[in-house]
Amino acid sequence: MTTATNVLPEPATPVRRSKLAGAVGDALVLTERNLIGYVRIPEALFFSTVQPIMFVLLFRYVFGGAIATPGMSYVDYLMPGIFVQTVMFGAVGTSIGLAEDLHKGLIERFRSLPMASSAVLAGRTTADLVRNVFVMVLISAVGFLVGFRVHTNVLAFLAAIGLMLLFAYALSWGFSIIGLSAPNSETAQLMSFPLLFPLVFASTAFVPAATMPSWLRPFAEHQPVSVVVNAVRALTQGGPTARWVVPALLWSVGLLVVLMPLAVRRYRRAI
């Protein structure tokens, strides 16, 4: 900072890349950035796993005894629901993170750079996918500790995890729209719950739909959360898998295909 000419850095030539390679590279740079954030604030990650663990304990030891599940023990019925609930609540993190980036001016900076307009969202959702892998491993361990068992095989269990990660990834794109529309990160969180609660609780995640009133049952049986939970149950406990896995995959891919372009469009108009 002594003479006029040396404030700027020495010139550097950008590496020429194809449009797609550039977009993937940008997304990876921002994925890394978001993951560093998670590592630097381990408290946030820790407390985001405390809640699902509490749910495991609550349903396993408090409510579980009162819930009859035909054909399997309640803990085996419960854990697929807990897995799906956990990744869904985790998707709220996507909306909070983006709302923060937006209101701290970071998104304005990214928008003024010659980078891919999908990169900010791809970087955030991919980081959240990585976080979900970590959370899945942790919740699985807790599940096995309280008596959850896979009655099929390891491959089917891994397929179940993969399916849930795909479903969660699709939801992350949806929640990014909320994050980019919210006036601040607290509101982003509040705006997410009215959407999450009916999907998570008016489902077959924790109780069979048979006990629900007749007006609620059709929704609870066919909405995507139930479909995914049932697919995970089939994959981990046995029974006809295609009946649930195929629609669960269709829901996940369908949501992704619809939500991705909507989110990118919202991003282009944010600020």
Partner: peptide, 23 residues
């Protein structure tokens, strides 16, 4: 708003921008 990522160090912030500019 001084749009820097608070969780990143100063060096990481500038490196990130450089990488986003395809250096």
């Amino acid at each position: 708003y001084a749009a820097v990522d608070e969780n990143l160090t100063g060096r990481e912030n500038l490196r990130m921008i450089g990488q986003l500019l395809h250096l």
